[in-house]
């Protein structure tokens, strides 16, 4: 028999019995960031493609909620910090090697961008909106003029943001479950899928909804491919990663991951969306909410299980 005990020390609730430093705040922050990135991506892309009118929910309506999502995300991040009054230290330096740092800076870029985008779209959705001050009106016209540039910046930065939500985890070599380059694309895809779902939810236009249902099906297919790929990668790797994957393959997180993330968050919505495309009457809220829920759960489960995975020594 092998017996390994910690004789003393480490009676530290964040570390024992397993690492538990990130609670709900970080996964929520990453979900909101991913969702925001997804919406901004589609808004930017369809603007560049000149489909502003056709897909007005994607381009105009959905982006109005993005500033709120990002602020909520930042609040969640802020709540995670344990030395809160030093928050501003994030913005006294740029640490290229620290995903936390460039995440903070990307948000610093994306958040104002989302405000500007929302500002130039607000009168489209609420026609009686009045900016009152001339400065603001002038600013609005200024940004309107450079909308296309804004759209390009938005597409690029939202991809960075989306990838960042995964890199934040995958940069941690210390947590074998997170230590895979697939988390970046996977979280980006999950963010895009959530964004598409949100657009579907908000859209009143049948053609737009159909388009986003199709997009969503495509993204989910990519996600499933990435997930399978990720587990295959783990299983072909070292014992620590095999053990890490085990958390989802027979371990304590198995049921929640496969039921909530894969079945309810991916397979069921795909089936429902396919059925809807086949003209069955399916209330759109169901697949959309399931996708959002699955995307949220994925972040929670990967955040928690990742902290439980460790090197053996």
């Amino acid at each position: 028999m092998r017996e390994e005990i910690i004789v003393s020390g480490r009676a530290n609730p964040y570390i024992d019995p397993h690492l538990n430093i990130w609670h709900w705040q970080i996964p929520l922050y990453l979900f909101l960031g991913g969702l925001a990135a997804g919406i901004l991506f589609f808004a930017g892309m369809y603007t560049i493609m000149g489909k502003e009118k056709a897909y007005s929910t994607a381009v105009s309506k959905a982006p109005l909620i993005v500033p709120f999502l990002l602020i909520l995300g930042l609040i969640a991040l802020f709540l995670d910090l344990k030395h809160k009054l030093y928050f501003w230290r994030l913005y006294t330096t740029i640490r290229i090697e620290s995903p936390m740092s460039w995440g903070a800076w990307v948000l610093m870029l994306v958040t104002p961008l989302s405000f500007i985008w929302a500002a130039i779209k607000v009168r489209e959705v609420f026609p009686r909106w009045d900016w009152k001050f001339d400065v603001l009106k002038n600013l609005e016209t200024f940004f309107m003029k450079h909308k296309l540039i804004l759209a390009w910046i938005m597409v690029v930065s939202s991809v960075i943001l989306g990838v960042y939500t995964g890199i934040l985890f995958s940069a941690f070599n210390a947590r074998p479950l997170w230590n895979t380059s697939i988390l970046g694309p996977l979280f980006l895809a999950s963010g895009l899928s959530a964004g598409a779902a949100m657009i579907m939810l908000l859209s009143k236009d049948h053609a737009e909804r159909t388009l986003f249902a199709k997009i969503d099906i495509g993204i989910i297919a990519v996600e499933m491919f990435l997930i399978v790929h990720m587990f295959m990668g783990f299983l072909a790797s070292t014992q620590v990663q095999i053990d890490a994957a085990g958390l989802f393959l027979g371990g304590p997180y198995t049921a929640s991951f496969w039921i909530f993330v894969v079945i309810l968050g991916m397979i069921v919505p795909v089936i429902l969306e396919v059925l809807e495309l086949r003209k069955y009457k399916i209330p759109v809220v169901i697949p959309a909410l399931l996708v959002l829920f699955g995307s949220l759960m994925m972040r929670f489960l990967i955040a928690f299980a990742g902290q439980e995975s460790r090197w053996l020594y």
Binding site: I71, L74, I75, F78, L79, K84, L85, F87, W88, Y91, T92, M108, L109, P112
Partner: peptide, 25 residues
């Protein structure tokens, strides 16, 4: 771009009046 102080103000407001901004500098 928002300065550091502005940023703190924004987040300060966001968390419901935690008095960060006043003392941050």
């Amino acid at each position: 771009m928002a300065s550091r102080r502005d940023f703190i103000k924004i987040s300060g407001l966001g968390i419901g009046g935690l008095a960060v901004s006043a003392s941050a500098y």
